[in-house]
Amino acid sequence: MSWLVALLLILGAFFAFVAALGVLRFPDFYARMHAATKAGAFGAALLLLAAAIHFGSLRAIITVGLIIVFFYLTTPVAAQTIAQAAYRRGVALWSKTVHDQLAEDEAE
């Protein structure tokens, strides 16, 4: 059991690190937002799962379940809100972007 917790701990921290690496290295704002929300939420979920397995009590499992559900409900909302605000304010897309669906839809 201890090995499973250790593996989940390292994997979760690795995904959080990958999210931060994406936020630093991706070329435009929208790609950075994408990296931060998806990988970050997945890393946090893995770490919380490790905590649930480590403690194994009912209280820990309920708390962890609540945090995971709440995190996965709120992260997309926050990402969508901030991306919409950025698009409305005219934050530039990457120069190599091939398709801007929202601009096409609004032109119709």
Partner: peptide, 26 residues
Amino acid sequence: PTPFDRVVALDLIGGICLCIIVMFAI
């Protein structure tokens, strides 16, 4: 370059803080 980048990075820092607290708990 934009304030939006800073907000997204701040949001990610919140998530990493959550990860650090869970790691401390274990």
